[in-house]
């Protein structure tokens, strides 16, 4: 039994000091502050907020009707009068379409990850907390799904369920459950073996109570960090599904779908064709960098 009081004698107080000096409440407040201090993360957060706000308020701020076509003004270049970002192959205003497209694409990025986090998190925490047979049962099933590449799985599911936004949402959710379950299981297993969980059991508390009050608080951080990194993948896969005709169907505005229909015009109006791709790129990169920063912020164990 080691009386290892003195493992890293100086490194530990060093890590302690900043936390102790300004002693303020919650863990999440500290994480928030840390993220805001990171300039890259701050820029990403602003970009995402702008995209999200413009998507939410699209009906009010969009300059035109997203579905109004005109054969006369097809593929106008950007900076044309009345059409700042030009028009698409059916003469619809690009800016309007991009704003409306954000509504579908962002929801398709966030919603499936959210659902998968809830379901996968519950599965993973259950598997990790109870261990043994429960763990085996849950994790082996998850492994089977895990064996397929996520894009392939999404395409297959969407193919089985049929095209449409709702179905692609379901297939994306199913795609993300296995990886989230895995992460949740591994962090729960770590937390479960901590002395404070043992101490909580020693008070006679029920499993449900321990999970809700001790485990959940300590696993949500890592799970959310991981989930936030999946949002960008979800945006890309859902765009891919739309591109393949398995997701949103015309005339709905969706970045992936727009990319698909505009690709024939790539030589005629290259900028117009690339714009939806730029949006997908901006949103997914921002989510990724933000999630990285979140991870670093939470890593600092006070």
């Amino acid at each position: 039994m080691s009386a290892a009081a003195e493992a890293a004698p100086a490194a530990r107080p060093a890590a302690n000091a900043p936390g102790r000096r300004r002693r303020t409440g919650g863990f999440w407040q500290r994480v928030g502050r840390q993220v805001l201090r990171d300039k890259v993360a701050l820029v990403c957060a602003v970009v995402l907020a702008l995209i999200a706000l413009s998507a939410i308020f699209a009906p009010w701020i969009a300059p035109a009707d997203p579905y109004k076509t005109s054969m006369l003004r097809r593929l106008l270049p950007p900076l044309s009068p009345n059409f700042i970002l030009g028009t698409d192959e059916l003469g619809r205003d690009m800016l309007t379409r991009l704003l409306y497209g954000g509504r579908v694409s962002l929801s398709m990025g966030i919603a499936p990850v959210l659902f998968a986090t809830i379901l996968g998190g519950a599965l993973g925490i259950t598997a990790g907390y109870f261990g043994k047979a429960v763990n085996m049962a849950i994790m082996r099933v998850v492994d089977v799904f895990y064996a397929f590449p996520s894009v392939l799985l999404a395409v297959a599911m969407a193919g089985v369920l049929g095209a449409g936004i709702f179905n692609s949402l379901i297939s994306l959710t199913l795609v993300f459950i296995p990886p989230i379950t895995r992460v949740a299981e591994s962090v729960t297993t770590q937390v479960r073996n901590q002395d404070y969980v043992e101490a909580a059991r020693a008070t006679g508390a029920s499993s449900v109570r321990i999970i809700l009050q001790h485990v959940l608080a300590n696993v949500t951080g890592p799970i959310l960090t991981y989930a936030s990194s999946l949002v960008s993948i979800a945006i890309i896969i859902s765009s891919g599904l739309s591109f393949l005709g398995l997701g949103a169907a015309p005339p709905i505005a969706d970045w992936g779908l727009m990319l698909n229909t505009l690709r024939q015009a790539i030589y005629v109006a290259p900028i117009n064709a690339v714009l939806p791709g730029v949006m997908i790129f901006a949103a997914s990169v921002s989510f990724n960098l933000l999630s990285d920063s979140l991870r670093t912020a939470m890593d600092v164990r006070a």
């Binding site: 863990f27 404070y196 508390a205 608080a217």
Partner: peptide, 29 residues
């Protein structure tokens, strides 16, 4: 049994939930 008998562990840090205040930790039981 667990009300009659309690235990204090070796590692003072690991045996406290890092997200709980002292009060929360004690009131839990």
């Amino acid at each position: 049994l667990r009300r009659t008998m309690q235990m204090v562990f070796q590692d003072s840090y690991a045996s406290l939930n890092p997200r709980h205040t002292a009060t929360e930790e004690i009131t839990f039981g």
